[in-house]
Amino acid sequence: MSGGVFDPQGPIALQERDLIIIAVSLMLLIAIPMLILLYTFAWKYRAGNKKAAYDPQHVGNALKQLTWWAIPAAIIAVIAVINWQSTHALDPYKPIVSGRPPLTIEVVALEWKWLFIYPAQGIATVNFIQFPEQTPIHFVLTADAPMSSFWIPQLGSQIYAMAAMETQLDLMASATGTYVGKDTEINGAGYSGMTFLARSTSQNDFNAWVASVKDSSNTLTVDEYKNTLLPPSENDPPAFYSSVDPYLFTAILTKYNAPSPTGTPMAFPGMQM
């Protein structure tokens, strides 16, 4: 089961895997006896077995009703408590507590590739992210495309990326490693190929990687974004930008706002998307 939900590589995915196991175990407590009863009665009271009792008057019993409304209710009550607590504990917007300061990565779902902007580092990438291990990663997401959903199964929760809206997701990798990320929501012809790699490394390797990206000759201006990233494309290889317009993410987020009275779309001051 490598590479999936049962191969967690971070605290969120680990908690979610345990949650799945606990919930399934609780439900088996009722499902297994239920099926044993079903098959036992089916065998015992088969028409061919004349020795078995036949009691057509046995059509109601308050105590039995109480039992099988109460037992599922009790299990569901336990699951409800787990549900409430785990939902709050695993809220994707909840910052992960760690000794290290979080790294923010802005994510833009495009047709059909992922744009990642590192605002603090001033770099941007396509279909590839790298980050230090044991460091909370704070993703801020939007889209300039149909709805997409951002998911790295081994690190945990997914969240939708939607145009004109901002969502957030906090994940963390426990160790170094490379994980596959993907889109889970159909968003057009290139949907299946919209995967990316998420690499967790040591802090030093991350710093070295940022420095190497900064050496790249590509820069991501608004024009570059509009000309090369916005048009639909499929199965794009990773790309790296040594610098990025600091207002790009905000401009993408606000470009869908209602038109201004003058008829031109409102964008961030000085920018026309």
Partner: peptide, 14 residues
């Protein structure tokens, strides 16, 4: 019921 638990759904949705 498993999918109805948001924390599990985050890993199983779609």
């Amino acid at each position: 019921v498993l999918l109805s638990i948001p924390g599990a759904d985050f890993e199983l949705h779609n």
